[in-house]
Design a protein around this nucleic acid. Structure first.
Lengths: 151, 151
DNA sequence: GACATATAGTTAGTTATGCAACTAATATAA
DNA sequence: TTATATTAGTTGCATAACTAACTATATGTC
């Protein structure tokens, strides 16, 4: 019995343990080899700010799938490196709006290129159609877990 | 340009940020709600020991995609909870073989059930064929990154 | 056999994660 | 308008991750 159980769980193992870890490590390695001194977690925050600057911490947490405590500390570290600044919102002084600094700006082009490079390395010999299936399935996995009750 | 870039990178974001995090949190939540006091990382080690007891730390690290330092500390914590014991190999005294204790045994059945439950929650309305495509693609992503040089 | 090299595991230092308890500011309700 | 509840963010605590430097054992070469 114990040998036959948990077949579907192997998917979790594959998703979580292998591909995700491998891609994350490769992206971090590509950053490091290019002399980019930020973590991929920090980059995920910058990435959303390059798309839309001045987001609140909570909104950044939502977009990067982090709780607010993790978001606080990531932004602490980004602030230490002078890549972002917190600005208290005038409308609601509970809210910190997070803005990119001039130091962060030159990182966009190079990190996008390194992210593209990482994706090209990761997705060799994988078709557009396959990628679409994976994205679609993983989106539905997420929706299955989010839409019921809190994760 | 910056708006049009990094299209493929969204896959990384989807894999890493959304589905993986959501599944991991749900599994941890299902453990917690059932009164199971282990982390999912600890469970990933126990899972491989239930399949094959007495693996070395390095082999456990390979199977769970961790480096040896992370594996050391994970096993430290499992040992504190008296779920595993380290036994120095007689053939090669550099090697620690890791064995399940009697305390760990009753966890197998219940955690397998909770993992199955988590997978059923995650994979609702997703077909076997889709799951096969995802597993296959993610395996190839992993192979793309592993087979070239070290991650 | 002696010296260099490789391997398994540990430790130190930094970053990141989640939960829970907390503060400060805002919104709601009596 | 005062009391209560909600919200955004911070902090404390524990676990986990990676890199690099380290110890101890084993292997290989001369």
């Amino acid at each position: 019995m114990s040998n036959n159980q948990f077949k579907r769980g192997e998917l979790y193992s594959v998703i979580n343990g292998m591909a995700t870890t491998a891609v994350a490590r490769r992206l971090q390695k590509n950053f490091r080899n290019a002399g980019i001194e930020i973590t991929i977690e920090q980059w995920s925050v910058l990435y959303h700010l390059w798309k839309e600057d001045g987001l609140s911490q909570l909104e950044l947490g939502n977009r990067t799938f982090r709780d607010k405590a993790s978001t606080t500390r990531l932004i602490d570290n980004l602030e230490k490196q002078e890549l972002v600044t917190r600005v208290a919102s005038k409308d609601d002084r509970r809210i910190n709006l997070v803005y990119l600094t001039d130091t962060a700006k030159p990182l966009q082009q190079i990190t996008y290129e390194l992210a593209n490079k990482t994706m090209n390395e990761s997705l060799q010999n994988i078709t557009k159609e396959e990628i679409e299936v994976v994205k679609n399935v993983l989106q539905r996995v997420y929706d299955n877990l989010m839409n019921k009750d809190l994760i």
